[in-house]
C-alpha cells in the first residue's frame, strides 16, 4: 500500500501580510515558509499509519506543486519522515490547476490513499482535494478527523453536524483531513534532517493545463468605523440610529 500526502508551501501562520502598493501582490520579503498546517497533520498521520502497519504500507510520498523555492518545505517533510517527494515545477495558480497537475503527475503511480489538508492557510480555497478526486476519478471523503487501518481497509470518521459518520471508502480514495486527525504535527529530529538530504526529491515538468480562475487584485477589509456609545437607558436613540442612520431595522 502506498500513501500520497499533498502539501502546500505557505507563509508561517504568524506572518504579518503586507500588500504591494498596487494591491496586485503580496510582499514576500522576510516571510518564513512552512508546510501548510493541515498538510503537516496529514503527513504525521500517514507516518503513524505506516509505522503501525507492520510493513503493509510501504511508502509515504509527499507531493507539491510549486517553484524550486518551495523545496525547503519538501525537505522538511522528508525530515519529518516521508520516504520520497515529488515536485511539479509550476506556480500553484488555483485549486483546479494544482489538482490537475497532481493528478497528471501521479496517474501511473497507483497510490491507495491520498491525503489533502482541508484547506491551505494562505488562500483558504478548500477546493483542491475534491477536485483532485474528480481528476483521478476516485472517491473523496471530506472533513476527515480520524483515519485508522483495519486489515486492508481504511476506516475514516467524517465530521457532520452534531457528530460524525464512519466511512469505509473503496481504495483508492482522497481523504480531505482537518484538525483532530492526529494529536500534533511531528517535529523532525536532527537525524531525520540529515537523512532527508539523501532521500529522493523528484521534479516533474508541469502539463499544459491552464488555471480556471483569473486573479484580479487584493482588497483589504475596510477599517472599522468609529464606535458610537449610547447610554443604556436611551433605547429610543439606539432604535432611531439603527433605523435612520445605519438603516438596518
Amino acid at each position: 500500500m502506498k500513501i500520497l500526502v499533498c502539501v502546500s508551501n505557505v507563509p508561517d501562520t504568524t506572518t504579518k501580510i503586507k500588500l504591494s502598493g498596487d494591491m496586485h501582490s503580496v510582499d514576500l520579503a522576510n516571510v518564513q515558509w512552512i508546510i501548510n498546517p493541515w498538510d503537516e497533520l496529514a503527513l504525521t498521520r500517514a507516518l503513524e499509519l505506516k509505522e503501525a502497519s507492520e510493513g503493509k504500507i510501504e511508502k509515504v510520498t509527499v507531493m507539491l506543486v510549486g517553484a524550486k523555492s518551495a523545496e525547503p518545505t519538501m525537505r522538511k517533510a522528508l525530515a519529518i519522515g516521508a520516504d520520497d517527494a515529488v515536485r511539479v515545477d509550476a506556480e500553484p495558480l488555483d485549486a483546479y490547476f494544482v489538482a490537475g497537475q497532481i493528478a497528471g503527475a501521479i496517474k501511473d503511480e497507483n497510490y491507495d490513499l491520498v491525503f489533502c489538508g482541508i484547506e491551505s492557510s494562505d488562500y483558504n480555497g478548500s477546493a483542491m482535494g475534491s477536485m483532485l478526486s474528480e481528476f483521478m476519478n476516485i472517491p473523496s471523503v471530506s472533513s476527515v478527523s480520524k483515519v485508522e487501518m483495519d486489515d486492508d481497509q481504511i476506516v475514516v470518521n467524517r465530521e457532520i453536524a452534531g457528530g460524525f459518520e464512519v466511512v469505509v471508502p473503496e481504495l483508492p480514495f482522497v481523504a480531505i483531513v482537518q484538525k483532530g486527525i492526529t494529536k500534533e504535527p511531528r517535529i523532525p529530529s536532527m537525524r531525520g534532517i540529515m537523512m532527508a538530504r539523501k532521500k529522493p526529491l523528484k521534479v516533474v515538468e508541469a502539463s499544459g493545463l491552464e488555471a480556471l480562475t483569473e486573479f484580479v487584485k487584493y482588497e483589504p477589509p475596510q477599517p472599522k468605523a468609529a464606535c458610537k456609545m449610547i447610554d443604556a437607558d436611551n433605547v429610543a436613540e439606539l432604535v432611531d440610529l439603527l433605523h435612520n442612520e445605519a438603516k438596518i431595522i
Partner: peptide, 30 residues
C-alpha cells in the same frame, strides 16, 4: 515570536540549518 534578522543572516544559513531551527523552535514553543 518573530526574532530579528536585520542583516539577512538567514541567507548565510543552509536549508538544513533552517529546518533545524524550525524544529527546535517548534519544540520550545510546544
Amino acid at each position: 515570536y518573530n526574532p530579528p534578522d536585520y542583516f539577512q543572516i538567514d541567507e548565510l544559513l543552509s536549508e538544513e540549518h533552517k529546518i533545524v531551527r524550525s524544529a527546535i523552535r517548534d519544540w520550545v514553543n510546544r
